[in-house]
């Protein structure tokens, strides 16, 4: 296998360093305690340091002898639309009610595909909303207002 500089490795390492570092910084604000009575900060501090250290190791290894991974294309449209659809549901389900929120979420989700025709999207969204309402609200008596 061809092993040399690998961008994905560096990226993965960077993300881990970032998350691990953030948790370490946060954990410093909590009581660390003693080994006998570990405070709330002890374990996250250690775990965060390990994550950051492993992230560093992955990044360094990626610069010298990384795994050859083809990163491939990123479906930007799908990434943006799907994240928005999920957040939309979380934010609006209490405010707009079950049926309208589901309809918009499903419609947004169908638009993540590049090959979808508008009419199909509307039909799919309507069908899914009807199914979801039947299953979750009618069938399972979920305590969410319809509208």
């Amino acid at each position: 296998m061809d092993r040399r500089r690998s961008l994905p490795d560096v990226l993965a390492g960077g993300i881990l360093i970032l998350i691990g570092g953030a948790f370490v910084a946060g954990a410093l604000g909590y009581d660390r305690g003693t080994p006998l009575r570990m405070g709330p900060g002890y374990f996250p501090l250690a775990a965060g340091a390990i994550v950051a250290a492993l992230g560093l190791a992955i990044a360094v290894k990626g610069l010298v002898a990384g795994e050859q991974i083809t990163f491939g294309t990123i479906p930007w449209r799908a990434v943006a639309v799907l994240s928005f659809a999920v957040v939309f549901f979380g934010f609006f389900v209490r405010r707009l009610g079950f049926v309208p929120t589901s309809l918009v979420t499903a419609l947004l989700a169908t638009l993540a595909s590049r090959h979808v025709r508008p009419l199909t999207a509307v039909a799919v969204a309507a069908g899914l909303t009807a199914a979801a309402t039947l299953i979750f609200v009618v069938g399972l008596q979920l305590r969410i207002p319809w509208f």
Partner: peptide, 10 residues
């Protein structure tokens, strides 16, 4: 996939 997304969030 829209079905998976919708059912997952609900």
């Amino acid at each position: 996939f829209p079905m998976i997304v919708l059912f997952a969030v609900i």
